[in-house]
Amino acid sequence: MKEILTHINGIPIHKNFVENLPYNPLLKVLLKEKRKARILSEVIFWKKVRAKKFHEIDFDRQRIIGSYIVDFYVKTLGLIVEIDGSSHDEQQVYDGIRQEYLESLGLLVFRITDFDVKNNLWIVMKELEDFIITHYETTPSSKIE
């Protein structure tokens, strides 16, 4: 039986820990710079999810996975949350390659826009709940005997 991580709206959510993720230590310097940058939408989102405020789920901010730094990562779900600002308008091919790579590791990527975090945060949080329920709900057919 899969281990339950939490419940969202009464629905049990199972853990999906992805082990042995690649890590590029050369990105440590860039990681520190990104954390200091304090991008407003990331700070707003972080305040909603840090310290297990969002359904007791533990989020990491600015995590190195392979040769990429992701905005937010949930180890217990194998879930990446990416906040796309206007710079991503010109990076659709790069973002696609990056997302394909991350998904090849067994991770899921939930993308939200900088605009929505700043202007529709309650909708973003509801969409995140729905995404987690859709992909991690423990149902009788998903249980491992």
Rank of each mutant, 00 (worst) to 15 (best):
K2N: 04
I123E: 07
V74E: 07
V29R: 15
L27F: 05
I80T: 03
E137D: 10
I64M: 04
F131L: 09
E3M: 13
A51K: 14
L26D: 12
E19Q: 04
W46Q: 03
L30F: 11
P12W: 00
S86G: 12
Q92G: 03
M125D: 15
E19S: 02
Q62M: 01
Y136S: 09
D130V: 01
F17V: 14
L105G: 04
D84F: 09
I80R: 00
D114Y: 01
A51V: 05
K2C: 03
P22I: 10
V124Q: 07
N20T: 09
G85E: 02
E3R: 09
G78E: 05
T76K: 08
D71L: 00
V124S: 08
K48F: 02
E3W: 13
E145L: 11
E56M: 09
G96H: 08
N16G: 04
G106N: 14
Q99K: 14
P25G: 02
K15L: 15
L128Q: 10
E129F: 00
L107S: 10
L108T: 13
P22N: 05
E56Y: 07
V93Q: 10
G10C: 09
N119D: 06
T134N: 05
T139K: 12
S104D: 14
Q99T: 14
V74L: 04
L128K: 05
I83M: 03
G96T: 04
D95A: 14
I123H: 04
V81W: 00
I97W: 07
P140G: 00
I83T: 02
L21N: 13
V81P: 02
V74P: 07
F72D: 06
Y101W: 14
E56D: 06
R50P: 10
G10E: 06
W46T: 03
V70M: 12
I64W: 04
I64P: 08
F45I: 05
I39T: 06
D89S: 10
K2P: 02
G85T: 05
P140H: 05
T139V: 08
A51S: 12
I8F: 06
T134A: 10
T76S: 11
M125H: 14
G10R: 04
E19K: 04
D60A: 04
L30A: 03
I11D: 13
I13E: 00
E103Y: 10
E3I: 13
I11T: 13
F45M: 06
L26T: 08
E129K: 04
M125N: 15
G66T: 07
K2Q: 07
I65P: 15
P140R: 11
G10Y: 07
V81L: 02
E82C: 05
I132L: 09
Q99A: 14
L107H: 13
N9P: 10
V18N: 12
K36G: 15
S87R: 00
V29S: 11
P22E: 03
V43K: 07
